[in-house]
Amino acid sequence: MYNFDVEKPTSIADAVAALGREEAQPISGGQTLIPTLKARLAMPSVLVSLRGIAEMQGISTDGQGRLCIGGGTLHAVVAKEAAAQYPALAGLAARIGDPAVRNRGTIGGSVANNDPSACYPSAVLASGATVVTNAREIAADDFFEGMFATALEEGEIVTEVKFPIPEKAHYEKFIQPASRFPLVAVFVAKFADGVRVAVTGASENGVFRWTDAEDALSSNFDAGAIEGLTVDGGGMISDLHGSGDYRAHLVGVMTKRAVAALT
């Protein structure tokens, strides 16, 4: 990697100030950024670590009954501490990467990076969560804007994610055999007012909601309800590990399995 300075602020305000420096780059768990730096594919002048900010750590419940997870919270912590209130989310966190990844990687980092094959964005989108930043609150539907693209402005930090807790939910993941990221994964969340289905790993535009399936499942929450529904393989990722058509097919299979696990 190239040389850089490191700042480790202890408050969100200090972090935002530090990110005002030229060529500054926030770093949370670094599970994407560190390999990028080692490959010399990025050259920030200063890394602003978000790991020392106490107000971005931990899990709590707010007045609306939402599960509020600090942006700097490790996957391993979510896996353990969210298990009682939101088992599908905890289960998702428990199967990200390996123990080393889960004890460095953070929810804020994952959501801000919006890797098209990351696990967390599907849970955020399917839950209809709210992404909280140092500046504002952004609805999940407005947050994810495409592969590695989000509504975040330059220097804006994901400080918290607030998850409404569904009646029931399930995350079904089919892994890419090399990276073990999702080749296709589907998060299904059933709320009193409807079902939300979010798909990761599949689309060239990153995480997306499969609205046809949502409509079908909202009127009949049964795996059979999505029989015959298909997504178009055209906009799907096609690579060494599977064609767009294969991914499109897996979207259906994973959705069915997620629903079957809940019925």
Binding site: F174, P177, L183, H241, G242, S243, Y246, H249
Partner: peptide
């Protein structure tokens, strides 16, 4: 014999 190849062969 990856999943994608098996699926393509089966279909």
């Amino acid at each position: 014999v990856t999943p994608a190849r098996v699926w393509a062969a089966m279909n």
